[in-house]
Nucleic acid binder design. Structure first.
Lengths: 148, 148
DNA sequence: AAACAATATTTGTATATACAAATGTATGCC
DNA sequence: GGCATACATTTGTATATACAAATATTGTTT
């Protein structure tokens, strides 16, 4: 990926600025690839993320706020995100019996089944994304990203 | 930034997956910081980006498609983005006399003036973002990001 | 010159996201 | 118990973005 080529500039920019633009370009690219990988399944990256979190609960229900805590990209409206998954019968939502302010969200069998297919598609896409990287590259990249 | 802490997981995830999540988290954080820096000026990051591109034209008008080419985050509707800048009198838009399909967009004096203030705010925010990095870190990070 | 294809932008529409206010429930205090 | 406060979620609304179709103009072919 060549930053200057992508944004079609010949201007020399400060290393700091270039790095931040670079990060955005990379993120956009990766986001697009992941979104495309999920397109056949008709779920957004956010919905996929929620399904993975719910599976990680291993049968334990999650409520909205814990769901939101664990999301990679926090969005201000997890209710409507779960609505979408409900409409697909990938999750069920019940009022929490011990505290009726809360809701309990659980992944369904249909959701688990669908998720396993999505996982495969996303894993393939991920592998393509990082194919140029050695293990050491990735470790180094993680160390650098930690500084943010 | 600790990935596992932010998304509140204790699960060991593959280095590839962790890297991609890491990138998204960093991007979200930087995006939020930049957006906040621009909030007092009532422009979005995208609008700021367009203004910078227009200034870079140095008096030469830009049309919509070149604008879109040079944007960091390409969006499907540059027309309406420019509408916002027009409403603030930061740009003017005219039909291109030599090819009436095209439009010519120019930054105004008011736009240039406003942009100079935004620049300062964004530059400060950028400095805070990269304060933990040495020059070598940034160079290394750019090299790694290029592999995507 | 008429017909067709290509180009540049605009408009329509559906969905996504951000932010604030509203709703319903629980808890602590007197 | 009644009242204020905090909590968890939902709803309303404005704005942003994605995608497709429509419009207007130009260039090309016959």
């Amino acid at each position: 990926m060549n930053v200057e080529e992508i944004i079609k500039t010949s201007k020399k920019m400060p290393l700091e600025t270039r790095t931040l633009i670079h990060l955005t370009l990379v993120h956009n690219k990766l986001n697009e690839l992941a979104t495309n990988a999920l397109k056949p399944f008709d779920v957004s990256l956010q919905q996929f993320n929620v399904l993975r979190i719910l599976r990680g609960q291993q049968g334990k229900p999650a409520n909205l706020s814990t769901l939101n805590d664990r999301m990679v990209t926090k969005m201000s409206n997890t209710t409507r995100l779960v609505d979408k998954l409900l409409a697909k019968d990938y999750v069920v939502r019940n009022v929490c019996p011990s505290n009726r302010r809360k809701v309990e969200i659980l992944i369904t069998e249909k959701g688990t089944e669908a998720l396993s297919h999505m996982d495969q598609a996303v894993a393939e896409a991920e592998n393509i994304m990082v194919q140029q990287f050695t293990k050491e590259d990735l470790e180094q990249l993680n160390i650098l990203l930690d500084k943010f």
